[in-house]
Amino acid sequence: MQHIHFLILSSSVFAIGFLGIFVNRKNIITILMSIELMLLSANINFVGFSYLLDDLSGQIFSLFILVVAAAEAAIGLAILTIFFKKTSSISIDNISKLKG
């Protein structure tokens, strides 16, 4: 297996996550899911290069990305629930109300 295989896979998943942020303007939940997809593509890159270069460091750093993704999802969804409680919508147009 060459490096180009998983590089194409991870860049495609990253691009799909990137596109998901653009097209879902009315739904912050799908934007958070797109961010999860982008973090997953970074994980695939780390683990793939760990396999290719015979190096364990990639898997260790992939573990830290998992930690950051879990923390980000928890905080993001907590902000989303109070945002929905205030404005009763999850559109990104209303998100300017978040400033002070």
């Binding site: 998983f6 939940i29 396999y51 969804l77």
Partner: peptide
Amino acid sequence: FKAEFLAMTLLIVYVGAVAVLF
């Protein structure tokens, strides 16, 4: 890619915690 621990951790953390939270 022979990363067994990370595969199982991905299932536990994402499917067990994050996706259920979503």
